[in-house]
Amino acid sequence: MKQRTLQWIETFLFLVLNLLIFYAGADHPAPKGFLWLVVWIVIVSALQYVYLGWFLRKIYQTEFLCLHLAFYLGIGIASLFYVMHGRIDREYWLLILLVLRVCILYGFVFYVVNRWLAHKFLR
Rank of each mutant, 00 (worst) to 15 (best):
K2E: 14
Q3F: 01
T5F: 05
L6F: 07
W8V: 11
W8A: 15
E10W: 09
T11W: 08
T11I: 03
T11R: 12
F12A: 15
F12Q: 10
L13T: 14
L13R: 08
V16R: 04
V16C: 07
L17N: 07
L17H: 04
N18C: 13
N18G: 04
L19P: 07
L19R: 00
L19C: 08
L19F: 03
L20V: 14
I21P: 06
F22W: 10
Y23G: 12
G25V: 03
G25T: 03
A26F: 10
A26V: 04
A30H: 05
A30Y: 04
A30W: 10
A30R: 11
P31R: 09
P31N: 08
P31G: 07
K32W: 12
K32F: 12
G33H: 05
G33C: 01
L35A: 09
L37D: 06
L37H: 04
L37C: 01
L37F: 02
V38T: 10
V39H: 05
V39S: 11
W40Q: 09
W40E: 08
V42I: 11
I43R: 01
V44E: 03
V44I: 07
S45H: 04
L47S: 14
Q48P: 00
Y49T: 03
Y49K: 03
V50W: 15
G53F: 11
G53N: 14
G53D: 10
W54T: 13
W54R: 13
F55M: 06
R57L: 14
R57I: 00
R57C: 05
K58M: 09
I59F: 00
Y60K: 00
Y60D: 11
Q61R: 04
E63F: 03
F64A: 00
L65A: 07
L65N: 05
C66D: 09
C66T: 12
C66N: 11
L67W: 13
H68Y: 01
H68C: 07
L69M: 10
L69G: 07
F71I: 07
F71S: 05
Y72M: 09
I75F: 15
I75D: 01
G76W: 01
I77Y: 06
S79E: 08
L80A: 00
L80M: 11
F81P: 05
Y82P: 01
V83F: 00
H85T: 02
H85E: 12
H85G: 12
G86K: 03
G86H: 06
R87F: 05
R87N: 08
R87P: 00
I88G: 02
I88Q: 05
D89Q: 04
D89C: 00
W93E: 01
W93N: 02
L94N: 07
L95M: 14
L95F: 13
I96N: 02
I96V: 14
I96C: 12
L97H: 09
L98D: 02
L98N: 11
V99S: 05
V99G: 00
L100H: 02
R101A: 14
V102D: 11
I104V: 14
I104C: 13
L105C: 08
Y106H: 10
V109D: 02
F110T: 04
F110C: 09
F110W: 09
Y111S: 02
Y111I: 03
V113Y: 03
N114I: 09
W116N: 07
L117E: 11
L117T: 02
L117N: 05
H119T: 10
H119Y: 09
F121H: 12
F121G: 06
